[in-house]
Write a protein that binds this DNA or RNA. Structure first.
Lengths: 193, 193
DNA sequence: CTGACTCCTTCACTTAAGTTAAGAAAAGAA
DNA sequence: TTCTTTTCTTAACTTAAGTGAAGGAGTCAG
């Protein structure tokens, strides 16, 4: 587990043994069962999540309906907006599968950043990369139809389609479960014809 | 112009006179005419843009059609994904209006960050804020219909609807210009009834 | 095993967006 | 100004997503 983390960090900055030990003393690793709710609407939180194994999702409940907006799998960091804005959360975060998560606290991060300015640089680069990546995803979503979005997902994150229930995938694609069913049937029909 | 910039920065970090002067020596401010293309598809660029006045937009050309994905107005920073990924750009950036832009270069930023580590911190915070903000926008887009998106825009960025041509707004909302026209007519009709 | 529940699919029907085309209005260029 | 081009709107028709309802498959608890 440690190795996975340090390998990841080494892509951005080089750590001394002292720095590695400082990190390990922070009690970052947590095992969490499928279905566990990590964050609820209305709650204030300072926690960020980083799945080393497993998958977590973010969802809103609007008019009594779950609207899934994102999935975070291995090595994809989630810092909920409420942690940044310091306001109660608008959404829920829960585990799609049994997970091993790295859970960090923003106070703790501030402390580490103060002690080791190197981390500031890493966090900046990480945020910039995520921002660019998310921008591209958003653009792709805007410029394509539900069917194209599904085909893109099939290309880019085929694992998700296996790991995640259809109705959660559907709202992730911006449509209803019935429409996703129909759309899949349509694609199969096209492949035949 | 300087004042606007320093007021903005002062929300994040406190600058010494030396640091302010270092910034001002960088030739950051540029006046740009409406319609100017700042970045083209296929081009490699290291430039970020920050409108002090005016509005710029990002758009793709897909199947010969312009797809507008974002507008950046006063005090909204744009670092194109190609600057982060160091690959040729997938999209265009152009001026919707005559603009006064702060244009920075990623090499220059790296230099400043090296000299004044404070800037690393500011950039980190800025990126984190933008990431959270963009996430919320993306979620709102996914969970709402074109009509709701238009009404949200009317609420949150009413200026855009005045400043920007309808056909650019339409693709920003993820629909065709004809659909936007119809949708607007529908809303007016509802207000009457 | 049975009954309750969730999830997925299918169907018929409704609603809204895409498409094609045409004309009016506005903006730019000569 | 006048001519040209772009932009916006409207309309008729097509296509696909939303809605409501129903049934089958799988899971879980008792």
């Amino acid at each position: 587990m440690k190795t996975i983390l340090f390998d990841f960090i080494s892509k951005y900055i080089t750590l001394t043994e002292e720095e590695k030990n400082a990190l390990l003393n922070l009690d970052l690793f947590h095992s969490v069962k499928k279905g566990t709710i990590l964050l609820s609407e209305g709650q204030k939180s300072k926690e960020s999540y980083f799945p080393l194994k497993g998958c977590i999702r973010t969802y809103y409940i609007l008019d009594g309906e779950e609207k899934t907006t994102a999935f975070y799998t291995e090595m994809e960091a989630l810092t909920p907006p409420c942690v940044i804005s310091k306001t109660p959360s608008d959404y829920y975060v829960s585990c799609v599968e049994d997970c091993i998560l790295l859970v960090s606290n923003s106070d703790m991060e501030a402390e580490v950043n103060r002690k080791f300015p190197k981390f500031d640089t890493m966090c900046r680069i990480l945020s910039e990369e995520l921002l660019a990546k998310q921008r591209i995803d958003f653009d792709a979503f805007k410029t394509s139809s539900p069917e194209q979005r599904y085909l893109n997902l099939l290309q880019n994150r085929p694992d998700l389609i296996q790991r995640v229930p259809q109705h959660q995938l559907a709202s992730y694609l911006g449509i209803k479960p019935q429409s996703l069913s129909r759309l899949r049937a349509r694609i199969v029909e096209k492949d035949k014809g």
